[in-house]
Every structure is written in structure tokens, then in C-alpha cells.
Amino acid sequence: MAPKIEVQGLGKTFAIRGGGTFDALQDISFALPEGDFLVVVGPSGCGKSTLLDLLGGLTRPTSGRVLLDGAEITGPALDRGIVFQQYALLPWRTAQRNVELGLEASGVPRRARAATAREYLQLVGLTGFEDRYPHELSGGMRQRVAIARSLAYDPGVLLMDEPFGALDAQTRESLQQELLRIWERTGKTVVFITHDIDEAVYLGRRVAVMTARPGRIKRVVDIDLPVHDEAADPRSSPEFARHRHEVWSLLRDEVAASRKEAVSVG
């Protein structure tokens, strides 16, 4: 079967203010079958978010290309949904109206928009909070709204840029659990960026480890865990520990490398 997402020789170079250039990403290639869950981990500043922007079509690559269902992407579109770390909810819109925002772009009639928005708010467990403004919701609830917003127009691909990074540990765990449930139910292809190894191993069916700057993919680790049994604390299983250690070892040198560079630059 043709892959859902295919990334070919992707590179991104930024111009630095005051002259010179800066390679954020270099020669990234991977293919992702439909319905897969890929987590990208890497040391800070390795270009993870740049990769997500390129997949989302928010920035253009310097070299290489991204294919979605075999066609090159040229900009943002409703076949991909992005969830940002800062939620990016419009503060003057209620939860319901925030979810409707993406539907407004696709020309869904008003009444159908409202019904769809309610349905997706229910999917993320926010029934009864439709009329709350973002500032009246907790961080975890805001991120649920943002997830509902990205799912509501039914994109095939969900791109998530450290979506749980700003949340406290317990909220993060419950949202991770729910994300897996939503993923299983909707069958979306997910690309999830994080710097948290536990999160990567828990969520990913595959974990791509990136190198320090310029970001390249060092290795893609297949995660082979039995179906999560939340009652049994899946993070405590020996398989989990083995995968975790594998990813940790791959990352260790990269973190050291990025730190060394930070010191020599600073």
C-alpha cells in the first residue's frame, strides 16, 4: 500500500539576521503508512518543530518534498490538522465556536457546524463546556478543545507539536491516554513531536530519534508493546523499560552534542 505520508530528502535552511545561514534540518526521509502513530523525539533545538511546520505546510522546505497520498503538499490544507503546544485558541470565541473555526473554512453550513462541533467536544470529553471561553477552562481542557478543533473537519493526518508540554504530569498522562483512545477510534495518521522519552514510547507505534543540529533522523525504533492495559500501569512493564532504554541511549549522545554546541556558541 502506498504510504500516507512520504518525506523525501527534506531540508530547511534559515537565513540568520546579520548574514549567514543556519541548517535546521538536513536530508530527512521517512514514509508513514495510513493509520500509523509516529513520535519524533530529539534534543532541544534539533528542528522538531520545523519538521512539523513543513509537514503542516506552514513553511516551505529548502530542499526535498513532502508527499501526502502521493501528492506534494504546497501549503496548509484541511487534509491535515495541527495541534500546537500553546493551544492557540481564539480567546474571544467559546469552546464551541473555536471548534467551528476550521469548519468555517470548508464551507460547512452553520447548523451542521454547530452539530459537528458538539460531537467532537463530546469526543474529547467536554460536553457541557461548549459555552465556556478559553480563559474559563484549565490548560488540559483548552488542549482538548484544540484537539477537537483539529479533528472536527476530519483530516486524515493529525500533526501535534509538543501538545502536552505545558501541562502538569497528571493531566498530561490522562490526555495521553485519551489521545490513544481517539486515535484507535478515528484511525488518523499521527505525527507527534515531543522531547519526553516516556511520552514517546507510551504513545508511538514508532519513535524517530533525531540528531542534534542540523536535525536528521538517527533511527526509527519500532515500539512493540502489548495493548495498553491502563489498570496495570503500562509504563511499568519490562517491554516498556526496554524500549525506553533503547530510545534513551540513542538520544544520550545527541543531547550531549547539542549541549556542547550550546556551550561553544554561548
Binding site: P76, L78, Q86, A88, L90, A105, Y153
Partner: peptide, 15 residues
């Protein structure tokens, strides 16, 4: 970030 989110939702510049 609002503008980025709106762009990611496929909204045109006038929208």
C-alpha cells in the same frame, strides 16, 4: 500563534 492556527485550518488571508 492565532494566525498560524488559522492558517493551519485552511483559512484564506481575507478570512
Amino acid at each position: 500563534t492565532f494566525v498560524r492556527a488559522a492558517r493551519s485550518l485552511g483559512l484564506s488571508a481575507p478570512r
